[in-house]
Computed example of a mutant assay.
Amino acid sequence: MEFFKNTSTILYGFLVWLVIAPRFNSPKYGESFLAYMTALLFCLIASSEIMMIKPVAFFFTIGGSIAFCYVVARMAIKFSIKR
């Protein structure tokens, strides 16, 4: 597939999904994260169905998957400095 041709679409997908990601310090973070994860799952399923017709949707959702991995890694890795 034309991966390098669609890198800008992947970047746009990453940025959009990163903006709608739940914030860690919100009071209902667990519910928001579950809704975020479910929306990404449905987008992956839908974009895989229309991949032959509109490959841009697939690459946009790949950017969303990378954003999801970034959000999970950001949540899992914490740095603390003790004095």
Rank of each mutant, 00 (worst) to 15 (best):
A46L: 14
P22I: 15
I62F: 07
V56S: 11
P27Y: 15
I20K: 03
T38Q: 05
A35Y: 10
S32T: 10
I62N: 06
A57V: 13
F3W: 14
F79S: 01
L44H: 10
I77C: 09
M75T: 11
V19W: 05
Y70L: 07
S26F: 05
M1Y: 13
A35E: 13
A57Q: 03
F59L: 10
A73P: 00
M75C: 06
E49D: 10
P55S: 11
G13M: 11
P55A: 08
F4V: 12
M51H: 09
I66R: 00
K78S: 14
K54A: 04
M51I: 04
V19I: 15
S48Q: 14
I66E: 11
S32I: 07
K5S: 06
M75Y: 15
F42Y: 08
V19T: 13
V72G: 03
A76C: 11
W17C: 12
T7E: 08
T38C: 04
F58C: 01
V16F: 15
E31D: 08
C43D: 05
L44E: 10
R23Q: 09
A57R: 06
M37V: 10
E31L: 09
T9L: 12
F60N: 01
G64M: 12
R23T: 01
M75E: 09
W17D: 01
V56A: 11
Y36Q: 07
A46Q: 02
E49M: 12
F59I: 14
S65W: 09
V19G: 03
L44G: 07
L15D: 07
C43F: 13
R83Q: 09
F58P: 00
V71D: 08
P27Q: 13
I81M: 01
S8T: 02
F68T: 06
F79Y: 04
G13H: 06
L40P: 00
F14Y: 14
A21W: 11
T61S: 05
F79D: 12
K5V: 08
Y12T: 06
F24C: 03
F14H: 13
A67H: 00
N25E: 02
G30P: 00
A73K: 11
A76Q: 13
S65Y: 02
I50Y: 09
G13E: 02
E2M: 05
S48P: 01
I53E: 11
K5Q: 11
W17F: 15
L44D: 02
A21L: 09
Y36M: 05
F24K: 13
F59V: 06
M75I: 10
S65C: 11
M1K: 11
S80P: 01
R74I: 08
P55D: 02
V71R: 12
A73G: 14
A76V: 05
F68H: 03
V19Y: 02
A39R: 06
A46Y: 06
M52G: 00
F24R: 15
V72P: 03
P55E: 02
K54S: 09
M1F: 09
I81A: 09
I77N: 14
K5T: 09
F24M: 12
M51C: 12
Y12H: 08
E2I: 03
F58D: 02
F58Q: 01
T61G: 04
I50G: 04
Y29M: 02
V19L: 15
M52T: 04
F58I: 03
N6V: 01
M37E: 10
L34M: 12
R83I: 04
S32K: 15
P22D: 07
